[in-house]
Write a protein that binds this DNA or RNA. Structure first.
Lengths: 340, 340
DNA sequence: TTTATTTACGCAATCGTTCCCGATTCATCA
DNA sequence: TGATGAATCGGGAACGATTGCGTAAATAAA
């Protein structure tokens, strides 16, 4: 089934003009008389003419669409990021094509190949937890595809990056726990390869150091899939709770891990914060309704999306290849509630 | 900044062939010898040739992309639906372009114009709460654009529809409340114009009727923006609680309304379920962690997305215009927890 | 009146693919 | 032996929009 659209050719034929004249009239060129312009414009409006974006793309050699790869749409943080991207892209007449890696490097690569073959003009990506080999991404970048990293960045690729202030966020959260009197603060980190994990871990370390609390390596655990699989949270928690010096507080490194921890505690009838305090990165707006209301570090997800989109668009629309890149670090928000 | 891609023309030149031969070799045409095929294929692989999808689209007069309009991505139900759509579309080589109406009819119309001008091959839409005038949508449909409705449908447009069994879902929820001994069950419905609202209200009515409980009109309230604006939930609740016969249970008609109600009760120190029971439609996987764990009706969002995508693809890929349309009704799940 | 300049439009190439026609070669058959 | 027919490939016209260049008419300047 087709849906026959009006083309410039139809208009030209109907009005006894050439396609070039019609095209120019529609684009308000100065070399078309007011009379013809009006005639063309009126007729175009009447028949509901919409320029074929595909033909335009082919001619202009750009698709007016940007690709976005995140691990999962159904994750508050990323859906808010996408929301931000969408708002900016839309304003500039760009389409947003979304793909999910589901934290799998393989799917990520497939998405990458797929999106680039769809002729996207640029890419915003938050790499998966599994991503170790980014040679393909690097090759794309070297071949000139504008790329902006958001949240989870790759240091080795020089381009614009938008991240939350993970270091300070983690620092503030840990410091808060310390101030509340917790001594044995465990961290349930996201995959150790991720930039955000390292930054957050660093913040955690610094806060302990500044408070003269010795760092215990066995209080540091990782969820390699970022909490995508519940069992990894479960086993990490079990490991933590089996130790001789049991932690009295948990600092969770991602949205899924945070709520996963709470789920685990609830299952095991561990009271929060009496038995074990909990704080973590999270962007759900439901955290204050949880039991107990969760203390969280919230990232400016929407704004991060906006920032990455406008950076990408500036990259796309710049005539000459860019060499100066910036890393925007946006501050997080510490929301203290009942779980700590 | 461009990123020069290898074209069929380059290959042809390099190999001393014509573009037609290269094109046919790549598409494995029978009229090309095995030798040339191998030569072309090898060379194409070597230089990493990827056919330009835009040129293909222009030629084939289809874009291999489908548009999706929902009210908000950052809403568990819709993000799960999108997830389902994405999974099916991806398998069939289609792009998914997402737009958000934010429950505004105006934005929805803009999205509609935008997406159709981007030459989408088909559309999946869940209309906004504000949508009263669907003439534009109807016109598009009559002009041959394949459309599938998901969740919020428009009866007047004949095409495939995918919905949850809202009637039965609401019926089960209301019946459950009745069985728990609640007598004065109020409903906080979504916008009255929405198909889902009417179906859910009907289920609510039927359950009361079957239990011989007289329906009280003043226990029926509406949130015209589907809970998008918190204040509308607030005022609706205030109205309910000011009445002479105060409700002892609330049945909420959407995800946002359900959590919004809980938020309101928490603010006003209304205990759940002692002072007021609460049940509602919701798709967040956090409901069991809430305080109290919420009883909810859960829709098979992912599956609904899958179904609508495959229906849309069948519509797109069918040679002749379809006249037989189906409405898939997928059953909901009643999850009973502490709030009732 | 003649020349220069502006105005307003058409022609045709282009973007990268696909595909309808031909054209050529070589084997096959009556 | 001439005709038929596969097999294999190239030429070139699309798809819809844009744009450099050319040119006729209209206007201004000389």
């Amino acid at each position: 089934m087709k849906f026959e659209a009006v083309t410039i050719k139809h208009i030209a034929q109907e009005l006894g003009l050439s396609t070039s004249t019609v095209s120019r009239a529609l684009r308000d060129s100065h070399e078309i008389s007011q009379a013809t312009k009006k005639m063309v414009l009126d007729y175009a409006k009447k028949v509901g003419f919409k320029p074929n974006r595909i033909a335009q793309s082919l001619k202009e050699r750009k698709s007016l669409s940007i690709g976005v790869i995140v691990c999962e749409i159904a994750n508050s943080f990323f859906s808010q990021v996408i929301n931000g991207i969408d708002s900016v892209a839309y304003q500039h007449g760009y389409n947003v094509i979304i793909a999910q890696s589901m934290e799998s490097a393989e799917r990520e690569l497939m998405n990458l190949e797929y999106l680039t073959s769809s002729s996207i003009d640029g890419l915003i990506i938050s790499v998966s937890t599994e991503t170790k080999n980014f040679s393909y991404l690097k090759k794309l970048h070297e071949r000139g595809l504008p790329i902006v990293f958001v949240d989870r960045v790759i240091d080795e690729i020089e381009t614009h990056k938008v991240i939350a202030d993970n270091y300070k966020g983690a620092y503030k959260a840990t410091k808060h726990l310390i101030e509340r009197g917790y001594k044995k603060i465990a961290i349930l980190s996201n995959n150790s390869g991720l930039s955000i994990s390292q930054e957050r871990l660093e913040g955690y370390r610094a806060a302990l150091r500044d408070a003269n609390i010795p760092l215990k390596e066995n209080l540091i655990t990782y969820c390699d899939h970022g909490g995508m699989i519940y069992s990894e949270i479960e086993s990490a928690m079990k490991v933590l709770l089996k130790q001789r010096v049991k932690p009295d507080a948990i600092f969770a490194g991602s949205d899924k891990i945070t709520t996963g921890c709470l789920r685990f505690m609830k299952q095991k009838n561990i009271r929060t914060p009496q038995d074990l305090a909990l704080i973590g990165f999270s962007n759900t707006d439901l955290t204050e309704l949880l039991n107990p209301p969760l203390s969280v570090i919230k990232q400016p997800a929407f704004e991060m999306g906006q920032a990455s989109a406008s950076l990408l668009l500036s990259l796309i629309e710049s005539k000459k290849p860019q060499t100066k890149f910036e890393t925007r670090i946006q501050s997080t928000e510490l929301l203290i509630r009942k779980s700590t």
